[in-house]
Design a protein around this nucleic acid. Structure first.
Lengths: 353, 353
DNA sequence: CTGAAAGCGCTTACAG
DNA sequence: CTGAAAGCGCTTACAG
């Protein structure tokens, strides 16, 4: 605790105190060596007394490993509701990192166009041994740049165009099909609208595909439609604005995420249509919002924290060997039934994967 | 871009390519030195061609500065609604850090009791040059430990018991008084209940004081009451459960944050009481939730992102000189009027500070 | 004005 | 079995 005002306590100081070499102190502290038990005791006592804290910079330089993993956040986390997703990611990564005494660096893109991107920041600094990328557009060249730079990388999401990468995600197609079928099979909806996310993101493409699979399988393709959104509340509102809805129009809307569903709910309320009476609504994500709204939004629960934790666990061995064979993990999702689809109370049904 | 599979490109490699010493390359790249313009050009070209990325570890060791600032998150960010607050903090800190090419490390406490605390993590690793602490209990010894360890520290919040520390926050007393007076003066409420946060946190103490100031000033102390909560949705619900509310009880409730207000709203709905008709409700924070609920919650907008940005800006000079005189900044808050107090539409009134 | 040496604080391969 | 040397990749104070 008694740290000198000037300069830090180093191995040398501890060594001087005990009367051995810094190398011996290092070995004593690391435990994995042939230093007598008595000396180890002395060293530990001296280190504690002097308030010795190893220099992470020196360790990193010597070991060629920083013990830091980066979480890369593309610009997308602007909207408030993205916050919860990202915090779940951060929590998941941190819990895995903490167990292994790794540090977590967060790299965000500057909001102004001027700055470096989150990717460049991580590559330029070489502070991290590996990176977790939470979401990026189809064909984003930055991911390949990261891996080409020798960094270990794990992606969260689905990247079919990058078969060489390790990723953790969910089966968006199956999940979207499932929630769509819920509207059709349980609530008897016959004319469905799907509001997609931005279609340069695989998630949006996959959720659209699941929707189309479901309506096609039930012979409802002709009575259904798809409109492109961008995951924002505004887009959900606009997507329904001016549409024929209710008795002589769409009797159900499948939004590709909850934010858009909330926007849609606002339009429906303003229009005087009841949910789920006139129009049933479902969303996707369950990051917090869907429980709060009135009515609550029936949605697909995406286990963001678990995904992130698993991503970190997949990353750690890749730091040792970035060329190890890539892996892919799909986590299970569940359908959370609330009022917006017509189900009475909140209830959770497990989705078969 | 052409980085070798084994090992990284170092100054030495660039130097060999150009035919000068590593030291000269370092100087050429740093710009601030007497290397001929022609050589500088050559060096830059060679560095780009070889894909040279400086080693942050070597730089940190040599400069005795890592270029990393830590954001310390105590356990509190468990609840989903804390997510938004913390993301605003992260965004604010990152934007200031990005401008100065600093990296942002996030340190969270392990959820299990086993692990190290977020504080220990930062101190033990010495990876960061400075730290921003977002919230901690009154008398938490960790803060003094951090500063004693020679780390530059800036706190977000109010810490009257630590006069020697630099902090950024808001005037909770004034803000709480203001929102309470709104219920009294604008909506004519005469019997008010205050649900506090955990009283080992200064924020909770200050907001209670503001509430008491207001009811006292209007001669309503006898008709009012205070009950302790803990900032959780559940606590807001429980605080109202079994109380006399409405016509023959409390006609207004001042919650110390929005999460508790949301919990209270749920109890009131279950009880069949109307908001704001029977009971007016106000919250505090405006981190996202209060806009979503039905009715929307009238609340005090806390500028978390700006607070965090300013905290980072105050931190940076303190890294140069951790003994510099401490500073205190109070940011302005605003009252956001929604339906829960009885105001018709959303509107923003600036709070005089 | 320029080049080479020293040293930041570690850890491990090597000499004794 | 133990101690001292080498070296990770930088930057700057110093010698020429």
């Amino acid at each position: 605790m008694a740290q000198g005002v000037q300069g830090r306590v180093t191995l040398k100081d501890v060594a001087a105190r005990v009367g051995i070499s810094p190398a011996a102190v290092s070995m004593a502290l690391s435990g994995r060596s042939r230093i007598s038990a008595a000396t180890v005791e002395q060293v530990k006592a001296a280190a504690a007394e002097l308030g010795y804290v190893p220099s992470s910079a020196a360790k990193a330089l010597r070991n060629q490993r920083s013990g830091v993993i980066a979480v890369i956040v593309p610009n997308s986390t602007q909207h408030v509701f993205g916050h919860s997703y990202f915090m779940q990611v951060l929590t998941g990564v941190s819990s895995a990192a903490n167990e292994r005494d790794l540090q977590v660096l967060v790299s965000t893109s500057a909001s102004e166009a001027s700055g470096l991107t989150a990717y460049e920041r991580v590559m330029r600094s070489r502070t991290a041994d590996g990176a977790i990328v939470t979401s990026s557009a189809i064909g984003d060249p930055n991911i390949e740049r990261l891996t080409a730079g020798g960094l270990a990388v794990v992606l969260i999401g689905n990247y079919p165009e990058l078969p060489g990468t390790t990723s953790v995600g969910i089966d968006d197609v199956a999940a979207s099909r499932m929630v769509t079928e819920h509207l059709i099979e349980v609530h008897g909806k016959r004319s469905l609208l799907h509001v997609t996310g931005p279609l340069d993101h695989q998630t949006a493409v996959d959720r659209r595909e699941g929707f189309l699979d479901a309506v096609r399988a039930h012979g409802l393709l002709a009575a259904s439609d798809v409109v492109e959104g961008d995951f924002s509340e505004r887009a959900g509102y606009d997507a329904l604005d001016g549409r024929r809805l209710g008795a002589d129009g769409f009797d159900g809307v499948v939004f590709a995420n909850d934010d858009m569903a909330f926007g849609g709910l606002q339009l429906l309320r303003r229009t005087g249509l009841s949910v789920p009476g006139d129009v049933a609504v479902v969303g996707f994500d369950d990051f917090g919002l869907s429980r709060i709204t009135d009515p609550g939004i029936t949605t697909v629960h995406v286990p963001a924290e678990q995904m992130a934790r698993l991503a970190a666990e997949r990353l750690i061995p890749r730091i040792e060997d970035p060329t190890a064979a890539p892996t892919r993990d799909d986590l299970e999702v569940s359908l959370v039934l609330r009022e917006s689809c017509g189900c009475a109370r909140e209830d959770v049904v497990l989705l078969r994967n």
